[in-house]
């Protein structure tokens, strides 16, 4: 008997409805969990995502009428298959996609985290029989502190750099992490400047009524004196480029879940690592999976081999799926991803 969802080499596929979820090859109809470029790729015939994700996709894929929005919790029927989008808590607009037909319910989680970051709609567990989960941080060494504690560390570091007359530069993905971080900064310390990639995303989100603290685009017209004592938020790729050199006397911080490991911290030429991730940690993954009530689990990108083995020992029917999703990567950035399908 054909399954409700399959993996056809182009993405997650629903044969009965003839739609793909987060496909990485060109297909006529794509349901998109969130706006990160490994999930929302260019070249699909039509896109369906949450209303919150629409402006993000339009910004990244170009203005087109092929992108359609849907509300969280709204039901959509395609050839008898019921689809609905539910908050995944990963970034603004991110959703888990629930798929139901007859007595079978699947949930494609996309990327997710359980903690409420204050800007993405908080994760909601959805009951299902089969759950497709990421495993970016699916190892018991990954455990996150709450974000208030992390923001305190960031602000303390900023104050110290300011006292020494330096610029503070932090890297964060331009969609999601950057806005989360900006809203966690204490604006009484100083000004927050942003790299163009982040400022563009910020202004689109602000236009759509998302609250993001005031930031200033770090244009060429400013000089060191303007930046001194202030904060600059940029995407990871900018930290390795000439762009960052204009800040002259600066300290570099990296906000990423990978900063949990000493080796990763030391390998980057950063001054400090802040352990801040938009993915679920070890406990988060286990809690989320348990809450679905699912027995069958498909594990994708990340530590899928190890994590699926662990789940099997816990009594789940867990399998690995090879996908082209990358999650938060240790050694590449949003802008320079290695195409894993080749």
């Amino acid at each position: 008997m054909e399954r409700l969802l399959t993996f056809d080499g182009k993405g997650i596929y629903c044969p009965r409805a003839d739609v793909h979820i987060d496909p990485w090859e060109k297909v006529p109809k794509a349901l998109i969990t969130h706006g990160h470029s490994d999930h929302a790729r260019w070249g699909m015939g039509a896109y369906l995502c949450t209303h919150e994700s629409v402006p993000i996709l339009q910004h990244r894929l170009g203005k087109t009428n092929r992108i359609q929005g849907i509300a969280f919790g709204e039901n959509l029927f395609i050839n008898g298959v019921k689809f609905s989008f539910h908050p995944a808590g990963h970034v603004i607009g991110s959703a888990q996609i629930r798929v139901e037909y007859k007595d079978e319910i699947w949930v494609v989680s996309g990327d997710y985290k359980l903690a409420n970051d204050g800007i993405s709609k908080a994760f909601e567990p959805v009951k299902c029989h089969t759950f497709i989960t990421e495993s970016t941080f699916g190892l018991p060494v990954y455990k996150w502190q709450n974000q208030t504690a992390i923001f305190d560390k960031v602000n303390t570091w900023w104050r110290k750099n300011q006292a020494e007359g330096r610029v503070s530069v932090i890297t964060a993905y331009s969609l999601g992490k950057a806005q989360r971080l900006i809203n966690g900064l204490d604006p009484s310390i100083g000004k927050i400047y942003t790299h163009g990639a982040i400022e563009n995303t910020n202004s689109i989100l602000r236009e759509h009524n998302h609250f993001i603290q005031d930031t200033q685009f770090a244009t060429a017209s400013y000089n060191f004196k303007d930046y001194q004592g202030n904060m600059v938020v940029c995407p990871p790729s900018a930290a390795n480029s000439n762009w960052v050199k204009k800040f002259k006397d600066f300290r570099l911080g990296i906000a990423s879940g990978w900063m949990q490991m000493r080796g990763a911290r030391r390998r980057r030429a950063a001054d400090i690592g802040f352990i801040l991730s938009d993915h679920a940690d070890w406990n988060g993954l286990n809690t989320a999976i348990e809450a679905t009530g699912a027995n069958e689990i498909y594990v994708t990108h990340g530590f899928s081999r190890i994590y699926s083995q662990y789940l099997r020992e816990q009594g789940y029917d867990a399998k690995i799926v090879e996908t082209a999703f990358e999650g938060e990567r240790l050694d590449s950035t949003e802008e320079e991803k290695i195409d894993q399908t080749t």
Binding site: L139, P140, V141, Q260, G263
Partner: peptide, 21 residues
């Protein structure tokens, strides 16, 4: 489980650190 500890150790690359985490 012990095997999961060992897998984590291979990835972290340091025993003292793996335990601490």
């Amino acid at each position: 489980p012990a095997w999961l500890f060992e897998e984590s150790y291979h990835i972290v690359g340091d025993l003292a650190e793996t335990i601490s985490l």
